[in-house]
Design a protein around this nucleic acid. Sequence first.
DNA 1: ATGAAAGCGCTAACAG
DNA 2: CTGTTAGCGCTTTCAT
Lengths: 326, 326
Amino acid sequence: MVTTKDIAKICNVSRTTVSRAFNDSGRINDETKQLILNTAKELGYRPDILATSLKNGRTRSIGVVVFDAKNPYFAQMLNAIETEARKRDYFVNITLHQKNAGLEHELLQKLVDYRVEGIILSPVSKGKEFEKFLSGLGKPVVLLGNRVSGNLPYVGIDEKKAAKEAVESICARGYKRIVFVCPPLSENSKDNNYTHEKRKQGYSSAVLENGLLEEIISSDDYAKEAKDMVNNSKDKIAFFCSGDGYALDIMKELRLAGKKAEKDYGIMGFDNIQFLDYVVPRLSTIDNSVEMVAEKAVDLLFDLMNGEKVPNKTYVEYKVINGDTI
Amino acid sequence: MVTTKDIAKICNVSRTTVSRAFNDSGRINDETKQLILNTAKELGYRPDILATSLKNGRTRSIGVVVFDAKNPYFAQMLNAIETEARKRDYFVNITLHQKNAGLEHELLQKLVDYRVEGIILSPVSKGKEFEKFLSGLGKPVVLLGNRVSGNLPYVGIDEKKAAKEAVESICARGYKRIVFVCPPLSENSKDNNYTHEKRKQGYSSAVLENGLLEEIISSDDYAKEAKDMVNNSKDKIAFFCSGDGYALDIMKELRLAGKKAEKDYGIMGFDNIQFLDYVVPRLSTIDNSVEMVAEKAVDLLFDLMNGEKVPNKTYVEYKVINGDTI
DNA sequence: ATGAAAGCGCTAACAG
DNA sequence: CTGTTAGCGCTTTCAT
């Protein structure tokens, strides 16, 4: 391995001077600088990042903790985060907590051990204690998806407003029964379900204002339940799903039962995952532009890393997409 | 930050002894060890990974370089790799080369700079020179998807055999025209298309043996081309696609044109991405179990990192999946 | 069983 | 403009 020492010897200078040639700090003769740079290149010198980091505390890497990468929503997110970080010449340490609070805790701790300079987190935990833990990490943290508290910067869309708007657009089509599908809300756990709760609030607010009944499916067997509902209802039902995946599952179940979206029932998703491009009929949904969220999150994280203040809540735009299923 | 120095002072021992308490090396009095461990815990001591790594060269991290994470195939792969690495208490540095050979080169170099202990790579480059570059990195490397040369360990399925088997199963259904759809092969670039070339070989071999004509669509406008073919053919056509995404695109186009899979044309994909679970009708495809590939790749990488020999080529099982589209 | 000293590769303070 | 010295936090001989 080529070190500054080798270069120093060859160029007949001290290691300090070599160091100076690479960092712009300190005045240095242009000729010696060129000499050093050239010989470094010849020798194929690569600075030792570990040593540098140990010295100055900067690793040029950020950490990411999300649910999992199979979920297309998070896959897109990881893609965008990596791309953005790359632009800044930063590396990304990606870890997956698999919805496991203990693992989440451990991973965050580990990322700090690895001296990432900042963390992007889509949390599964919540509450005061977790907030304290996050603050205690001593690293900039930006939250995605679920909020933890009003104090920690969060990037997302205005879930409640979006949901409300979506449900209103369903009402406008004359549906008399609008069912909210949201399995995560069934789990009697301590998970952080901020996102889904907000969506539910938006849904509730809209149905109530329109004089409709609140109907919620939160069972894991939502597809079958939805089918039964359709089969037993006189009125045409619209399903408003707290995620495109749920909508796709229901559509599949109902298609197999000979029911056609839009004709026999209405359905709307949430998130607008890329896969929808492949699906016919076009699923109505809400574009929760994950790329924009990720970009913004990286932006904010770097602002924080640079010691700047950022707002606690940053909303990016969403868009109700009128497909062919409502 | 709590260091060994602090603990040493409190326990009235030297830093060496503290070090010994954590590593099993060296004999140490059990009482002092317990004392040290306890005070360390109390103080919330966390070893400095950077310093440790600088000293002993091990970072407990591996690097991954793949095309992108939006592609569900790679997303699943990343998920599996992270999960496997986690089991071994290793971190994963994920980077995306976006099919850009220059970026691929740079990323590999960078990962080495970061002292990852091994690399999993789905290459876009190929050829002797690239092989030399990879060997020159001085790190264990395991290749996924595309091979680079016979010398570097590779994990995948027997693409050619799988493709041949699939095409034969299509023949068995009586199709007289079987069209291979493979846009990557059109690109007149220097990309590494090992996978797709192997699939084509399998296809060619099967159609020739069955006395059929070789027909290949490699245009980027494959969906439209496929539609035109169906509209103008007397015989029922089967499309054998070198990737599920292509198949889904074609199915969408044809559905919009009022054509039904299996009734008006046959179609088969490749890879069996998770998303297919949502799609009706069930797409026939080949299960290229990405989880198994990823698991095996991590296995082999760790073997290499432990100085063991591994085979240059490791095939995992695949399975032709008979859906409802052939 | 424990400690002193050296060093991983780099940079920053202080001199000159 | 350049060199000397010291130190980041840890481990590893080599003594004792």
